[in-house]
Each structure stands twice: as structure tokens, then as C-alpha cells.
């Protein structure tokens, strides 16, 4: 079953059209990689799915679990199960990761009509996830994204993903600026989360990340459209020959 269906999506920032009729279907339980050169619209795509208000959808539709995703607000999309791992995670001074995730989870439970969060259970669950990804208790007490290295930030983005258990995870250039160890953590996070009902969309410049997360399908995106799709070999071919032949 399709988890996400994007049909003929056109998106503008200001007067400039960035996505120019993009169509993409992501089945449940699959990992898709989207590769493309700078400025091809990869980050725009991930932001539009997540509901970043900077981008304006001028045409087309996005269905998530059969629902019209574009009619939902950003937080509603998140609570329906859309997660975006940020390329540049945003600082929130004075708010600890623990507080932040507690707020996020209690909003989600409220949205889904579930019973309120039990604080003891919350801490337990958070610590289990944190341990698995090598995040210390001390890090959880520090302010969200303040004063962390690039690698630590991505590790903590991965933790948030693992903790919130979304159905659809977008990782927007999570590999940029990461050393091998940090890449491995991201790969490990995705690895433990790979399930029948959960899908991933990896946005990346390089084939490198795909050494740690094996994709089911690779798409090449050029100038606001998907121009080629294939298996992992496609990524290797691009790595070798560049994007020139698709332009």
C-alpha cells in the first residue's frame, strides 16, 4: 500500500518555481533515496511534505495514508506520522531535549486521543532509546541543539526520530558534514527503525550514506523533477559519472 503519493507537485518560493511537476509514490516499508545536484529542489521537497510555511504549493497534491496532507497544519502532519530530520537543526535555548520531547509526545498523544503521558514511563522510554544511540543523560539535559557538534546534532535528530516513532521519516542531507562514526549512528538509527509499516526518504548528495542505509529505490532529481528511478546501482552510477548525463 502506498504510504505517500505525490502527484504533479508544483512549488514556489516567492516568484521562483522550484518543484515543477514532481510525481513520486512511496510504498509502506520501503527506503527511498533522492539524489541530485545542488538546487535541484531536494530540500524543498522535504520541507513541503513537512509543511514549512515558507514554501507555496501552486499545483498538485500529496496524499499521506490516503489523507490530503496539504490540508493539514505542520504539527498535525507530524502527529499523523511525518518526521523531518533537519540538515541544520534549530537551536532552542533553555529548553532541554527531555522537555522538548516530552512536550512533543504529549501533543501527539493528545492529537491521537490517547491517554496523557506518564512521566515515569516517558523517562524510561527516552533513556532506552538514548542508550541505544549513545546519547548520554547529560546531553538530554542540555538545550536543544545549543553548543553541540554537527555529529552530535545529527545523533540527537536520530534520537528524536527513534523516540517519536513516526511512520514516515525524511532525512534531509543528514550526512552533510558528518564523519564516519556519525554516519554510522544515523545508519544504525534507521536500521533499528526499519519496519514493515515504516518508510524512509533519504535526501543526499552522495552515495556515501547509502553504504550505511541500503535503499530499496533510488531517484535522481534534476531541476524540480524526478528524472530517473532505479535500484542501488543507480546511485553508484551517479557517483561515478555525475549528474551531467541527466541534464
Amino acid at each position: 500500500m502506498a504510504l505517500l503519493e505525490i502527484k504533479n507537485l508544483h512549488v514556489c518560493v516567492g516568484d521562483k518555481e522550484i518543484l515543477k511537476g514532481l510525481t513520486l509514490t512511496i510504498e509502506q516499508g520501503t527506503v527511498h533515496a533522492i539524489m541530485g545536484p545542488n538546487g535541484s529542489g531536494k530540500s524543498t521537497l522535504s520541507n513541503v511534505i513537512a509543511g514549512n510555511p515558507v514554501y507555496e504549493v501552486t499545483e498538485g497534491e500529496i496524499l499521506f495514508k490516503g489523507k490530503n496532507l496539504l490540508a493539514l497544519k505542520t504539527d498535525e502532519r507530524a502527529n499523523e506520522g511525518v518526521f523531518l530530520g533537519f540538515q541544520y537543526p534549530i537551536e532552542i535555548p533553555g529548553v532541554s531535549y527531555a522537555t522538548f520531547l516530552k512536550q512533543a509526545l504529549s501533543c501527539k498523544r493528545k492529537y491521537l486521543g490517547e491517554t496523557p503521558l506518564d512521566p515515569v514511563q516517558f523517562i524510561k522510554r527516552l533513556k532506552i532509546r538514548a542508550q541505544a544511540l549513545g546519547v548520554s543523560d547529560d546531553m538530554l539535559k542540555r538545550s536543544v541543539n545549543v553548543g553541540f557538534s554537527g555529529g552530535e546534532k545529527k545523533r540527537l535528530e536520530t534520537l528524536q526520530m527513534a523516540f517519536l516513532e513516526p511512520d514516515f521519516c525524511i532525512l534531509d542531507e543528514m550526512d552533510s558534514g558528518l564523519d564516519v562514526d556519525a554516519l554510522r549512528v544515523v545508519g544504525q538509527g534507521v536500521g533499528i527503525m526499519r519496519e514493515k509499516c515504516r518508510s524512509f526518504m533519504l535526501i543526499t548528495h552522495y552515495q556515501r550514506l547509502l553504504d550505511y542505509i541500503e535503499p530499496d529505490i533510488v531517484h535522481i532529481m534534476i531541476n524540480g523533477k524526478i528524472v530517473a528511478s532505479g535500484d542501488k546501482l543507480l546511485a553508484l552510477r551517479v557517483e561515478e559519472k555525475g549528474y551531467a548525463c541527466y541534464k
Partner: peptide, 14 residues
């Protein structure tokens, strides 16, 4: 900032 708000909202916080 709008970025801070978007970040929080993306995590499900209204």
C-alpha cells in the same frame, strides 16, 4: 524565529 516554530511544529507541538 519562524525556523524555531517550524522545528517545534514539525515535532508535533502546536
Amino acid at each position: 524565529s519562524e525556523e524555531q516554530l517550524f522545528y517545534c511544529e514539525q515535532r508535533g507541538v502546536n
